[in-house]
């Protein structure tokens, strides 16, 4: 970039989440210095207490919308942001906390809190894109540091980031991992899951947990037949789709087919 050009302003915003995706940025180590060199990190609660108001060229949004206050706040952030990119399963699909969408939140708060009337919360946990327009969604629970750097680098030069939406199976094959489902009979969500992690779990002889949510054209109905043949009952099938991306439509609908 030309040295005399003003650096783009970056904001990292947190909603209902565990902070793991923000920490992924801090974990980028050497690359973090390059990020700091390329952008002006104007708001990043995990890394600094400095708070700068004004407009942001790039906003990275972590977390889901679970409270009336946050449902308002995301609009304010959208208005301040030229590009808004959501990072992680919470921001792109509602996260693990979207399990509340299948339950009665009032019933939980009355059991968990001494004064449930202090709790002001929504009945659902939803993705940022359900509330404001989003320019790009980066998947993962947590996101991959490599992919985050790629998204920022692509933003800086105005190109499309290389974050393929095909299955995790493609990543297994690219790295030469033997298919755990076919060769070991291990249930695996890889065929319906969005690539991005680099197919970590199958490389350690575990099935894919679906951390990156549904791939571009998922067929979980067919996969469930295969998983059932490997011994998963209806309860297990319902639960396998109800994790970090429980509220992603393809997983939500498939989990509902196996029980309420």
């Amino acid at each position: 970039m030309a040295a005399n050009r003003k650096k783009p302003r970056l904001g990292v915003w947190k909603f209902a989440s565990c902070d793991g995706c923000q920490l992924t940025l801090l974990d980028c180590e050497d690359d973090l210095l390059a990020v700091a060199g390329a952008v002006d990190i104007a708001y990043f609660p995990e890394a600094t207490r400095a708070e700068i108001s004004g407009r942001y060229d790039l906003s990275l949004v972590e977390g889901s919308i679970t409270t009336p206050h946050d449902a308002e706040r995301i609009h304010a952030i959208r208005r301040r942001s030229r590009k808004l990119i959501t990072i992680g399963a919470c921001a792109t699909a509602g996260g693990i906390q979207a399990l509340r969408n299948f339950a009665d939140v009032q019933a939980y708060t009355s059991v968990v809190y001494a004064r449930p009337d202090y709790i002001e919360t929504l009945a659902t946990s939803t993705a940022i894109a359900d509330h404001v327009p989003v320019d790009f969604e980066l998947r993962g629970c947590p996101i991959s540091g490599r992919q985050l750097i790629e998204v920022i680098a692509a933003f800086l030069v105005g190109r499309r980031p290389v974050t393929p939406a095909h299955s995790v199976c493609v990543e297994c094959k690219l790295r030469g991992t033997v298919c755990v489902m076919v060769a070991h009979g291990t249930p695996c969500l890889g065929p319906v899951t969005h690539a991005g992690c680099g197919a970590i779990c199958p490389a350690y002889n575990r099935g894919c947990y679906g951390c990156y949510g549904p791939m571009e054209s998922p067929n979980p109905v067919s996969l469930s037949h295969g998983l059932a043949a490997l011994g998963m009952d209806a309860r297990a099938l319902q639960r396998v789709y109800r994790t970090f991306n429980a509220n992603a439509p393809a997983f939500r609908d498939e989990s509902a087919r196996h029980g309420k």
């Binding site: 970039m1 690359d31 390059a34 990020v35 060199g37 390329a38 750097i149 790629e150 920022i152 680098a153 692509a154 800086l156 030069v157 190109r159 290389v162 095909h166 299955s167 199976c169 493609v170 094959k173 690219l174 298919c179 890889g190 065929p191 319906v192 791939m215 054209s217 998922p218 067929n219 067919s222 996969l223 037949h225």
Partner: peptide, 28 residues
């Protein structure tokens, strides 16, 4: 039944299709 996962093409010894991916450094 098809999962569109791409496994058949990845394991096929004749499937030859490729794409190209461009990356750029943060400092441009």
């Amino acid at each position: 039944r098809c999962l569109t996962c791409g496994n058949c093409t990845m394991v096929c010894p004749t499937c030859f299709c490729t794409t190209v991916e461009d990356t750029s450094s943060l400092d441009g």
